[in-house]
Design a binder for these strands. Structure first.
Lengths: 155, 155
DNA sequence: GCTTGACTCTGTAGTGACTACAGATTGTTA
DNA sequence: TAACAATCTGTAGTCACTACAGAGTCAAGC
């Protein structure tokens, strides 16, 4: 099959498939005479694996590790369990952070109930104060289980 | 004060301050003869406002809107409430998504209790199947209250 | 006056995981 | 043969920064 069909079968955009190839997650497939990529069922399986992992919000680096285990079936899988436990820990931590954030936002919202002029808006005035106990922000704009690239803001 | 002191006072990296200036969130300040930026208390207040908003995980575009209200104090602040309500909604939605994800990860983890060879690892085998009901993933790798730039994966 | 070291300047590139597009080529159907 | 779909490579953009390189500025000590 060609890239379009692989994309349809695995619900993956064509650019994403080529991106995975560039990133070394998907091996470079054979080509037709006209230089079109040709895939078979092994590619479907591998891409399904990757997409399933991504749907569970694993980072590509984590997926790389899991793929290495898939490629070495006699290896002991203990590290797979460890990786998954760590990932579950990250997700749980992010949930706790977001809940704290939600609480802060709701208490901020309570400062202004009816519309009035902006100069007297309790929300805007509160926001002008430095924030109290530092964001629980693990990666900026509610992103990033893993902390990620983004800066931590802890005033 | 110069940029270093502003950074210390507001717990903001120098590069971030310059970035906000480039982005138009912070007005370009006066300069010394030697071309150093000089800030005063109004800048401290404005930057504190921005950082406080960021610590609440608002996007810079949302903060831009709030700043417009701060700059027009006679305007009605009803839209501030609307924006905040929407933001709270996004956070709440992301928490729901992450909880669903946590459940999926835990049930995946249950498939392999003791370390064995990778070929028989229930986790790796399960991941090779296409994912069941599509990720609740609102932005890739547990990022993004706002959905953001990232792709949604819903197989 | 000179040196040292801290501070600041501009500009560019990198982060993650893609997405979007331009411009060219290939394949399929009428 | 022409039209059109599919694919190719390569580059740039997303968000909110961070990290440098290489140059210039400033204050304190000698």
């Amino acid at each position: 099959m060609r890239i379009g069909e692989l994309g349809r079968v695995t619900c993956t955009q064509i650019e994403t498939i080529r991106y995975y190839e560039r990133e070394g997650l998907l091996a470079a497939p054979a080509r037709t005479e006209g230089n079109f990529r040709i895939y078979d069922d092994t590619h479907v399986e591998r891409l399904s694996f990757i997409r399933h992992c991504r749907s569970l919000d694993m980072a590509l680096d984590e997926i790389r590790i899991l793929l290495r285990f898939k490629d070495a079936p006699t290896e002991n899988c203990g590290d797979v369990n460890t990786l998954l436990d760590a990932h579950i820990g990250h997700v749980a931590a992010r949930i706790r952070e977001l809940r704290a954030l939600e609480g802060q936002l709701k208490s901020l919202r309570d400062r202004c109930h009816e519309a009035q002029d902006a100069a007297h808006c309790g929300i805007l005035n509160e926001l002008s104060q430095p924030s109290r106990q530092g964001a629980t922000n693990g990666g900026g704009h509610v992103h990033g289980v893993h902390g990620g690239v983004r800066a931590r803001y802890t005033p």
